[in-house]
Design a protein around this nucleic acid. Structure first.
Length: 859
RNA sequence: GCCGGGGUGGCGGAACGGUAGACGCAGCGGACUCAAAAUCCGCCGGGGGCAACCCCGUGAGGGUUCGAAUCCCUCUCCCGGCACCA
């Protein structure tokens, strides 16, 4: 090999060797401990982005490290291949989503291979292949049989100009991204998966996941959102009918403070009231404009209008006016809420805005209530007592809820209830590029499931969406089908499934991707659960929750034996970069940071942002996650081509810890490259010595060996806690130490130290480590060598340094014997000139001795 | 708005509640060179001091502790999620 580091040559050689030996193939070996290391599969957007490089390098480091620890490791890869971007690309270029997707997969696969990941490519899957999505359809039908899938209406964003359903992403400031038309809410029939039925399990099982980050479990728990309260009813008489308005509340203790009720715009009571009230009808129409996103709902101005109708208070029988509120969601609970302005901040603002009465029914001692200003304690249920509440006066929260619930129950107007924030999962998408929902609509027989033997319902791959709705609706060869029941001409369902369906079980299919006859088989029991799952923090809730749900459904269907799919989870921080754009009408056109010239003054402050191509200004939208839609990604390909895969991998690991967000910056890549070049040169320079080394360690090796083993200890510790940036820096420190001692160290110590360095680096920079390992005669194949062991004997020191503090401030240091007693240490510390200077001879009030670390003298 | 996370030199970051700034990037000075690149050596939070050394310093303010970047409270800014982006 060359004296100079040639990454292209090194990487070609190493990858050829791995290919020849089948080093990355995973084979079931009953009895051997397995380690299933899985990174979230990519959407084939065109080319890899930095987030992928980060994600898959983390996975590869863990894979290679655990192979060194003797585990049977599976690391597969595949493609989350259905989705909206393929349709957007079709609209832009006229290329069918299928072709675009397959081309992207081919290119990205090459990129992944060039990075040298230890992936078992024989298990590759793509969710857009019929062999895969057949099982989406098959399980959908099983869930339909079990009643876990059902139909009801759902609200979608409707673009009135393009006459099409828009994704939330396609709604910008309440308008359609292509047409600029004000988006409307529209109710359409959809299929739902009853994830709420699993809500208690999904919540409780979080406790059985010690390998998950607390923050993710907390987010999931809050998302599932168990709350205990009372489902109560306000009776009313309308059109001669005695009826009930139902509402759920966690604050039944404030029931006596109800001064109004608010219902959603879609609520039957609202529609009834609007019949002979044009102003109200207009208001309801207004509520139906705008997006369906929760964030928009939460930040919009709270508006309401009286219906003119009233219901009866369930305890007092008093008339309570009913309002329509734009902030009340039909999809939450009963689509109606009781208004208690005195003790709910939103109701307080609403009542003050519309002049509704505010009635205080909770008091806290020493606090005075005012209808003018909201104060936090108004809503505090921990220290309040009921007032102005008749027979409930004086009761605390729990007692009042109990008493009121009991009274309501006696009247048949309410009962205690546990509700969940979690809503059922609507999986219907009015889009082409997804899994066809396997149903047939027959005029005579209604909705008929496609028989199992006719699966998969194959999606035609030559459609080109044009933005005017699902092209499947114009494909007669797809639409027209004989009804499986009566044989008459019927129509296929053209809605496709949410792509979260695809990603909810792909990790199971990696165990048995070649099985045409079953969704999963025996091999799933060997490999699952996933021992280490790695992916972006942005998936902390939805993808992970849906996957947990599917696993439980499959368990209940007897298909798998596990309860939870992912034993350990590493949530990688996002890779961020600045976002640049120009406004063009209602749209934003984004420019890649590489195309933007940032002018600065001599203090480094920005003076101008211009596009290189035309010299005209662009705007910055701040910093955000690298994404195709914001066009702020950095192409890792240039990095790989210029410096090689090992540099790209090393830099990604070195630059920040895995869980932390990473703001992209090019500087530092040079440093990583320089380091690998130094490793290479050092190895070449000492190759002869190291190859021939046979002797024993010399006494003069003590300093180097202590350092090598201390650094190895640190690297091992950091590898276990997955803090790879300090593993990388341990590698740098190892090289520094070796270079400093190279002249005086024995050949044996040099050989040991370099051997440790190569194995510490191997998971991160496998190509370089592989080639040098073989070349320096360490053994046949580094992929088969174990992780090195710390030699405890090399760490022992005769004297240790203690830090001296006076009142917690550093005042010097003290060298003491390893086994010095507390009294001797205290004595020496008090006699130390640095300490004496600050104690002024005074008798210390206290002396804190932390063995092996420090002495703190308190005066 | 709600839920979750974060803020440490010019920059990325390090630091079982125990020497803040390891390791690296950038910068500055030097060696080598006709010169440059590469490489090597040194300096590198702010202030004061000839020096020994001292004071200040981990987004802001308060608290707990012998001792706080680390634990607690309040605030602030940034990032992620909010159910049809994946």
């Amino acid at each position: 090999m060359q004296a100079q580091y040639q990454p292209a040559e090194v990487e070609r050689a190493a990858q050829a060797a791995w290919k020849a030996s089948g080093a990355h193939r995973a084979v079931e070996q009953p009895g051997k401990r397995k380690y299933y290391c899985l990174s979230m599969f990519p959407y084939p957007s065109g080319k890899l982005h930095m987030g992928h490089v980060r994600n898959y390098t983390i996975g590869d480091v863990l894979t290679r490290y655990h192979r060194m620890r003797g585990l049977n490791v599976l690391q597969p890869m595949g493609w989350d291949a259905f989705g909206l971007p393929a349709e957007n690309a079709a609209m832009a270029n006229g290329v069918p989503p299928a072709k675009w997707t397959y081309d992207n997969i081919a290119y990205m696969k090459k990129q992944l291979q060039s990075l040298g990941f230890a992936l078992d490519w024989e298990r590759e899957i793509a969710t857009c292949r019929p062999e895969y999505y057949k099982w989406n359809q098959w399980l959908f039908l099983r869930m339909l049989e079990k009643g876990i899938v059902y139909q009801k209406t759902g609200v979608v964003n409707w673009d009135p100009v393009d006459q099409t359903v828009l994704a939330n992403e396609q709604v910008i400031d309440g308008r359609g991204w292509r047409t600029g038309a004000v988006v409307e809410k529209r109710e359409i029939p959809m299929y739902y998966m009853a994830i709420t039925r699993y809500a208690p399990q999904l919540l409780e099982a979080l406790d059985a996941l010690p390998g998950w980050p607390e923050r993710v479990k907390l987010m999931q728990a809050n998302w599932i959102g168990r709350s205990e309260g009372v489902n109560l009813a306000f009776p009313y008489t309308l059109d001669g009918q005695r009826q009930l308005l139902r509402a759920f509340t966690t604050r039944a203790d404030t029931l006596m403070g109800v001064t109004f009720c608010a219902v959603a715009a879609e609520h039957p009571l609202a529609s009834r009231a609007a019949r002979d009230n044009p102003a109200l009808a207009a208001f309801i129409e207004e509520c139906k404009r705008g997006s369906v996103m929760e964030a928009d709902m939460a930040t919009m101005e709270k508006k309401g209008m009286a219906t003119g109708l009233a219901v009866e208070h369930p305890v007092t029988g008093e008339a309570v006016p009913v309002w329509v509120g734009n902030y009340v969601l039909m999809s939450y609970g009963e689509g109606a809420v009781m208004g208690v302005p005195a003790h709910d901040e939103r109701d307080f603002a609403f009542a003050n805005k519309y002049g509704l009465p505010i009635r205080q029914v909770i008091a806290v001692e020493g606090e005075s209530f005012s209808t003018d200003v909201w104060r936090e304690w108004y809503a505090d249920k921990t220290q309040g007592r009921c007032v102005n509440s008749g027979r409930y006066d004086g009761l605390g929260y729990q007692a009042a809820v109990g008493a009121i619930a009991a009274d309501l129950a006696a009247k048949g107007l309410g009962e205690k209830q546990t509700t969940w924030r979690l809503r059922d999962w609507g999986i219907s998408r009015q889009r082409y590029w997804g899994t066809p929902i396997p149903l047939i609509h027959c005029e005579g027989c209604g909705v008929v499931p496609v028989p199992d033997e006719q699966l998969p319902v194959v999606l035609p791959e030559d459609c080109v969406p044009d933005g005017s709705g699902n092209p499947l609706n114009r494909r007669r060869d797809f639409l027209h089908v004989a009804c499986p029941k009566c044989g008459k001409l019927a129509r296929r369902e053209t809605d496709t499934m949410d792509t979260f369906v695809d990603s909810s079980w792909y990790y199971l299919r990696y165990a048995c991707p070649d099985n045409p006859g079953a969704m999963v088989d025996e091999r799933v029991n060997y490999w699952l659960p996933v021992d280490q799952y790695i992916g972006g923090i942005e998936h902390a809730i939805l993808h992970l929750l849906y996957s947990r749900f599917w696993t439980k459904v499959m368990r209940d269907l007897g298909l798998v034996s596990i309860d939870e799919p992912f034993a350990n989870l590493l949530t990688q921080g996002m890779v961020l970069n600045e976002i640049f754009f120009r406004r063009e009408g209602p749209r934003r056109v984004y420019f890649n940071p590489a195309e933007v010239e940032v002018a600065v003054d001599d203090k480094g402050a920005r003076t101008a942002l211009t596009l290189r191509a035309d010299g005209l200004p662009v705007e910055s939208a701040g910093i955000g996650t690298m994404s195709k839609s914001k066009n702020n990604g950095v192409d890792p390909q240039a990095l790989i081509e210029q410096y090689g895969a090992d540099t790209a991998r090393f830099f990604m690991m070195f630059t920040s810890p895995p869980e932390q967000t990473l703001e992209w910056s090019d500087s530092g890549v040079e440093g990583a490259y320089r380091f690998l070049r130094r490793v290479w040169s050092f190895a070449q320079e000492h190759a002869a010595t190291v190859r021939a080394a046979a002797g024993a360690f010399e006494p003069r090796d003590a300093v180097l060996r202590r350092e090598v083993h201390a650094l190895l200890g640190q690297a091992s510790y950091d590898m276990e806690r997955k803090q790879f940036n300090t593993v990388a820096s341990a590698g740098m420190k190892l090289l520094n130490a070796l270079q400093e001692s190279a002249a005086e160290a024995s050949a044996a110590a040099l050989r040991e130290g370099l051997g440790v360095l190569l194995r510490v680096l191997y998971p991160v920079t496998p190509h370089l480590a592989h080639v040098l390992w073989t070349e320096l005669g360490y053994g046949a194949d580094i992929t088969l060598s174990p992780w090195p062991q710390v030699d405890q004997a090399a760490l022992v020191q005769d004297k240790i340094e203690l830090v001296l503090q006076v009142n917690g401030k550093l005042r010097g240091s003290l060298l003491v014997a390893r086994d010095a007693g507390r009294e001797a240490i205290e004595h020496a510390a008090l006699a130390h000139p640095g300490v004496l200077r600050f104690t002024n001879g005074a008798v210390p009030r206290k002396v804190v001795v932390v063995p092996g670390r420090l002495v703190n003298v308190v005066v």
